[in-house]
C-alpha cells in the first residue's frame, strides 16, 4: 500500500467524530455462513453498516456469526439489547434491514412482522 494513501486514511479518521464508545447499547449479529451468504447476507450487512453510519449511531456494535441452523430463513440478524429479549429477524433484504435500524435501533420498537423468533 502507498504511504500517501495511508496518510489520507489517517486524516479522514482524525476528522471523523462520534466513534463508537464502549460495548454499545445494541449488538447486531449477521449470519454469514454459506447459507446466509447465498441468500444475500452480504448486502444485508452492507445496508446495516451504511444505515448506522449515516444516522450517526455510535452505540451499536455489528458483528457476524457462522451458520446457526436457521438456513431456511436467511439472511438473519440477531439483536441483543440489554435488559430485553434477544430478537431474531429473518428473510431480510437491504430495505427491510434499513427499516430495522430506523424502527428498532432508533425508535426502540421491534419490527414485529420481520421477527422469526425471540428468547
Amino acid at each position: 500500500m502507498k504511504l500517501e494513501d495511508l496518510k489520507k486514511i489517517r486524516e479522514k479518521m482524525e476528522k471523523s467524530t462520534n466513534l463508537r464508545e464502549g460495548k454499545g447499547r445494541i449488538k447486531a449479529v449477521v449470519g454469514m455462513g454459506t447459507c446466509g451468504i447465498a441468500a444475500g447476507a452480504r448486502d444485508v450487512l452492507s445496508a446495516l453498516m451504511d444505515e448506522i453510519s449515516k444516522r450517526n449511531l455510535s452505540d451499536i456494535v455489528v458483528t457476524q456469526s457462522g451458520c446457526r441452523g436457521l438456513c431456511d430463513v436467511e439472511p438473519i440478524i440477531d439483536v441483543y439489547e440489554e435488559g430485553k429479549q434477544m430478537v431474531t429477524y429473518g428473510n431480510l433484504t437491504p430495505e427491510k434491514t434499513r427499516r430495522i435500524v430506523a424502527e428498532h435501533f432508533v425508535n426502540g420498537s421491534t419490527v414485529t412482522e420481520l421477527v422469526i423468533s425471540s428468547k
Binding site: 495511508l6 486514511i9 489517517r10 453510519s53 455510535s58 455489528v62
Partner: peptide, 27 residues
C-alpha cells in the same frame, strides 16, 4: 491492500466501528 496497515493508519483494531468501516470501504 493490507488490513494490518489500515489498522495502523486508523489507530484502531476495531474496524467494525461503522464510521471507521466506511472509511475502509471508500478506500
Amino acid at each position: 491492500i493490507e488490513s494490518r496497515e489500515l489498522k495502523e493508519a486508523l489507530g484502531t483494531d476495531e474496524l467494525n466501528d461503522p464510521k471507521v468501516s466506511m472509511i475502509v470501504k471508500d478506500y
